[in-house]
Design a protein around this nucleic acid. Structure first.
Length: 579
DNA sequence: GCCGTTTTCGGCCCGACTGTTTTCAGTCG
């Protein structure tokens, strides 16, 4: 078994032990053992062979045996027995907010609750409020948590949806019957979350395409299988529709099913003003009837651009079709040149195994270089982020030293900047003193705790951090976790103004679970002079690639390359950071 | 389960919030 898989097993063991009400220190021992193993930079096989595994801090006699067994045989009897003793549906209970291992154990022991369904039933029957340590408020919070979970499950993160959709579009294009294929809908508009997938295909022989689609791997249920439209549901709950249209209708169908609905309403109004009626079938004389067999489209549209042109508009990129005056701009002239993936020259705000990342410094730099980045900014957590293994002053100094040696070694062409994601404490002061901050190349300041302050207090707190001269940029401003946790209360326009006044950057956290600050605020903010940085907040080497999701929403926010720090080449960044 | 030692057992572990209590336990980041 590979190192990363073993880390996963150790983490799962710790979860299972927690649910069983085991000694919390034992639980933590498995967590820290997993972390210690993860930060191992050498080859695991070699370390086991040399009998040096036990020398690693956090890995004792018991873990040496278990890790060795997993590495050599892929099996561990202890793990199998533990797994068999806890119902799988019970692990899911840990995903409900305000419900931790202790309460789950109590619910299980006293009421026999072992799943979300049985918890819901018990709450609705009022049985939970009667338990000692629980109450009416807890019961209703749990019910809310369960309800939110259901609502959230109806939508999916863009990244997840795109990962499913992209290979399907490519495969559709490979089919001999298919002329053209695109994914439409909110996925194409690069919305932060996606309800379902819409595939539009141009073909003269729909049937084989339909049959291929409903037979896709991972399809759990076929909810429709017709002549021109089929619907399926994949494992994990994601739904997908496929529409096959004749080639001459493709552009109209793509425009229609890309939306947004509001954008379409505007477009149809515009057509009506010109004596036409626009639909997914074509652009028609408004006085002809849909059931008229001789009805002909006013134009033959090869592409969506042809339709926009006929209506006197420049092509509107899908990301902009949100009915936020994009049609007015398209009427007057061209859009500015928005941010593109290849504009990004490097990324800041990334973690390593020094705090809660899953790859070492060298692994991260290697990956950044493979992506073609000129530079990589490391910003591990600071000490107040105790749960994330935040660095204290001493460990930070050692990391700065290590980075400086790495740069001097000439091993990588990718330059590494030494930074920190320093915690903004409750009163707005920072987790490191100014002289420590001054020793860094740059500083990301983020809120990670006390999320329930009033809007006024939170705003004051964040602005105080922005005003610190050592703070280069503000991290994930609102703290939202898409489909999991709402943003905390904060006066966003006030924070934006303060950032502009203090020449502080506000990051666009590109992690698909955050995409924070929300795209709806950016257009106005950059017009006012705000500078941003597209930050993947990577916790592993794959995470570096998430900057693409940030570029997506940057385009939705009308952000241009000049508004983004990390479109600048290395030399300019050094100047900007005063290095 | 790990660690360290005043060496074989006791300590490991931050700070805030919430809801349940009436001084604290559980959860979260």
């Amino acid at each position: 078994m590979e190192k990363s898989e073993i880390v996963g097993v150790l983490e799962e063991i710790s979860e299972l032990l927690e649910l069983k009400g085991e000694n919390p220190f034992k639980v933590r021992a498995y967590q820290s053992g997993a972390r210690a193993l993860e930060s191992l930079e050498e080859d695991l096989g070699t370390v086991i062979e040399d009998k040096r595994l036990g020398q690693i801090k956090g890995i004792g006699k018991a873990l040496v045996e278990k890790i060795t067994s997993l590495h050599e045989t892929g099996k561990l009897a202890y793990y199998d027995e533990l797994k068999a003793s806890v119902p799988e549906s019970m692990i899911e209970l840990l995903t409900i907010p305000n419900l931790g291992p202790k309460k789950i154990k109590k619910l299980h022991d006293e009421l026999g609750i072992d799943s979300i369904d049985s918890l819901k039933a018990a709450c609705e029957a009022g049985k939970v409020a009667d338990l000692a340590g629980f109450g009416a408020k807890t019961e209703s919070k749990l019910l809310t948590g369960i309800a939110n979970r259901v609502a959230y499950q109806a939508r999916h993160h863009w990244w997840t949806a795109a990962t499913v959709a992209e290979p399907i579009v490519e495969a559709l294009r490979e089919l001999p019957e298919v002329d053209r294929a695109e994914a439409a809908g909110s996925l194409r508009r690069k919305r932060e979350t996606v309800g379902d997938l819409d595939f539009i295909v141009a073909s003269k022989t729909p049937k084989p395409v339909m049959d291929w689609f409903v037979g896709l791997e991972g399809v759990e249920e076929v909810t429709a299988h017709g002549q021109t439209k089929s619907s399926v549901r994949f494992q994990g709950g994601l739904q997908a529709d496929l529409r096959v249209v004749p080639p001459e209708q493709f552009a109209f169908a793509l425009l229609h099913f890309t939306g947004s609905k509001e954008h379409n309403v505007h477009m149809r109004q515009r057509a009506l003003e010109r004596g036409w009626s626009l639909s997914e079938w074509g652009l028609f004389d408004k006085d002809t009837k849909a059931d008229d067999p001789d009805r002909q489209s006013v134009i033959q549209a090869e592409s969506e651009a042809d339709i926009y042109a006929k209506l006197g508009l420049k092509f509107v990129p899908p990301e902009l079709r949100e009915d936020r005056d994009e049609i007015a701009v398209a009427e007057k002239g061209d859009f500015p040149k928005f941010l593109e993936i290849e504009d990004i020259k490097g990324v800041f705000h990334n973690h390593t195994t020094a705090s809660d990342g899953h790859n070492t410094l060298e692994e991260m730099v290697t990956a950044a270089q493979e992506l073609g980045f000129e530079y990589l900014g490391i910003a591990d957590h600071s000490k107040a982020s105790f749960q994330a293994n935040g660095l204290d002053e001493e460990r930070l100094a050692a990391q700065i030293e290590k980075i400086s040696e790495l740069n001097a070694s000439g091993k990588f062409t990718c330059h590494v900047f030494a930074g920190s994601e320093v915690d903004i404490l409750k009163d707005g002061s920072l987790d490191f003193a100014d002289d420590v901050l001054a020793s860094l190349d740059y500083v990301v300041a983020s809120v990670h705790n006390s999320l329930t302050l009033s809007e006024e207090e939170m705003t004051k707190r964040i602005i105080r951090a922005i005003e610190n001269e050592h703070v280069t940029m503000l991290g994930h401003m609102t703290g939202r976790l898409l489909l999991k946790r709402e943003a905390y209360a904060v006066n966003i326009p006030k924070v934006i103004d303060a950032a502009i006044a203090n020449d502080t950057i506000i990051e666009l956290n590109a992690n698909p679970w955050r995409l924070d600050l929300d795209w709806r605020y950016w257009r106005q903010a950059v017009e006012k002079g705000l500078l941003t940085s597209i930050n993947p907040d990577a916790h592993d080497t794959d995470g570096l690639g998430l900057f693409v999701a940030g570029v997506n929403v940057a385009r939705k926010g009308w952000i241009e390359p000049k508004h983004v720090l990390n479109t600048r080449p290395l030399a300019e960044i050094k100047t900007y950071l005063g290095l």
